[in-house]
Design a protein around this nucleic acid. Structure first.
Length: 504
RNA sequence: CGGGGUGUAGUUCAGCCUGGUAGAACGCUUGCUUUGGGAGCAAGAUGCCGUGGGUUCAAAUCCUGCCACCCCGACCA
């Protein structure tokens, strides 16, 4: 049956249908905020634990900074203020009073508190206290937290007023070390997206106009969605001494001279899940790559005729299957198996798990007990018939199968992505490419959706303004040493290769 | 924040123009029949018609304030 809206009929509604069909999240009474339900949160937890391990392996420690940031503190870095001021939630009162039956804010705060949109400022303030000598550096910390950005227009997972993320913050004694850190972390994000989420990304540096407010350089991973738009999926910033200067993070260097520290920050958010949905969703619902699937294998029992004996036998058989499966270690981790004993029909349960995108759904019933087999559906191959596989063969090959599915999902997504990138070497073709409002259908045809152009770096503002007319933008610099003709100036002086696309 | 649209059962929606007992499908409950690729029959249950005002003998329906969601812009990590 599938979803009500397909990707080709109505992409935006299709996306919401998947979120609902997979039971990942729903809207909440607070505008622009969402309730993340167990299946959605389970995916987030797996993303989180995968990345957390990488963060720790690269020498960082977790900690926690407060949700509230004094307004004055936020104000210190001018570019930073400009970048975030328009989307800030501000706490101004400390009490509610009952006025004629209506609760009314009362007792104004002496200094308003902003709800963190990101924590550079408050963390820099602490860094300043923690750092005295070069021996105190580097400081490398991370926090898992929620942040609030008062967005005008929200979309589940892709852009919500409150979202969950991880933000890493480091301070170093040299520029070189800080730049290195910035690049190390963007590489972690690439690995997270590609190796764990099976979501191919392009790594690049942001242009001058597009970087993080207050940063010297911003690097990003960009995922390309099947509707032809690009999604910024993670960023890593080299902040230079900008925040160090405004928060006075200074240290005495080896020459006994005071010097400002070099800081970085980097983050990925629940937006990744939006990318996951679009990369791997189809007209039946979601597909979750095994490595981050809350359940990798779901066992659905089939009982017959309310016959208690057969029911017990089936349960025993299923429990044995669960036990055997749990001996395998796909991706070197404990396998995640769910034995779904809920009181629903087997058919309902099967389709529910397939909509949610569990990689393998396996049914066991009386016939299987007789033949010592199991009935298996693979989510990434739903068009195939249900396969009846020998019990022992199934348990012995599940690990390899999950790993194979993971690879296949990545390869498929990558193939689609690669097919939709073209190079354009002159302005007219670039305009012609973006002119039609390319809905998914047009993008799905042969016309590629993402464009690489060569550029000398000239007239950035004008270029962005022009691209904006076609709802497109420069996403990042994919090659810093390109040669050839600049698409904008027409001169033979290109320095960069940049990625241009419509964006989320 | 501007323009447009929507809000009715758990879900998707009809009803609104032209005011007069609250509807359908799916889902849910119960029973029977089925039973391994989205079951069938029968009987049931389910509503502050988003919300506050107004017009009217009478409002889901007309007017209006607010709220939320969706789309298009503007804005933006």
């Amino acid at each position: 049956m599938g979803l009500q809206n397909t990707r080709t009929s109505n992409y935006a509604d299709w996306y919401l249908n998947v979120v609902k069909a997979a039971d990942m999240a729903e809207n909440s009474p607070a505008r622009g905020c969402m309730v993340i339900k167990p299946w959605g949160y389970g995916i987030w937890e797996n993303i989180k634990s995968s990345l957390d391990e990488m963060i720790k392996e690269t020498g960082h420690e977790n900690c926690y900074f407060p949700l509230f940031i004094p307004l004055s503190l936020f104000q210190k870095e001018a570019d930073h203020v400009d970048g975030f001021a328009k989307e800030m939630a501000v706490v101004t009162h400390s009490r509610l009073e009952n006025k004629d039956g209506k609760l009314t804010p009362a007792s104004p705060l002496e200094e308003p508190l902003v709800v963190r949109p990101t924590s550079e400022t408050i963390i820099a303030e602490s860094f300043a206290k923690w750092v005295g000598s070069y021996r105190d550096l580097p400081i490398m910390i991370n926090q898992w937290a929620n942040v609030v950005r008062w967005e005008m227009r929200t979309r589940m997972f892709l852009r919500t007023a409150e979202f969950l993320w991880q933000e890493g913050h480091t301070a170093h004694s040299t520029e070189e070390e800080a730049v290195d850190e910035t690049l190390t972390m963007i590489e972690c994000y690439r690995k997270l997206a590609e190796d764990y989420m099976a979501m191919p990304v392009i790594v690049g540096r942001k242009t001058e106009l597009d970087k993080f407010p207050g940063a010297v350089d911003t690097y990003g991973i960009i995922a390309m969605m099947p509707d032809g738009r690009a999604l910024q999926a993670g960023t890593s910033h080299y902040l230079g001494q900008n925040f160090a200067k405004s928060a006075n993070i200074s240290f005495q260097n080896k020459n006994n001279k005071p010097e400002f520290a070099y800081t970085t920050s980097w983050g990925v958010s629940t937006r990744l899940i939006g990318g996951l949905i679009m990369t791997h969703g189809d007209d039946e619902g979601l597909k979750v790559p095994p490595r981050i699937a809350p359940y990798q294998v779901v066992i659905v029992p089939i009982y017959r005729n309310d016959d208690t004996t057969s029911r017990d036998e089936v349960n025993e058989y299923a429990e044995n299957l669960e036990k055997e499966l749990k001996k395998s270690m796909p991706f070197g981790e404990k396998i995640r198996v769910k034995f779904d004993k809920r009181d629903r029909t087997p058919v309902d349960k099967r389709w529910e798990w397939l909509r949610k995108g569990a990689p393998i759904v396996v049914e066991v019933g009386p016939k299987d007990i007789e033949k010592n087999s199991v009935a298996v559906v693979y989510r990434n191959r739903m068009e195939d018939k249900k396969q009846f596989i020998d019990f022992n063969e199934f348990t012995a090959t599940t690990k390899a199968k999950l790993e194979e599915i993971q690879t296949e999902m990545f390869e498929n997504a990558k193939k689609l992505r690669d097919e939709s990138i073209i190079e354009i070497d002159n302005w007219d073709d670039l305009v012609a490419h973006f002119k039609p409002k390319n809905k998914f259908l047009e993008a799905e045809g042969k016309s590629p959706a993402f464009v690489k152009i060569k550029w000398c770096g000239c007239n950035e503002q004008e270029l962005e303004d022009k691209l904006k007319e076609f709802q497109a933008a420069i996403h990042c610099i994919t090659n810093e040493e390109a040669k050839g003709k600049c698409v904008v100036s027409g001169e033979d002086n290109a320095r960069y290769e940049v990625l241009v696309a419509r964006s989320y």
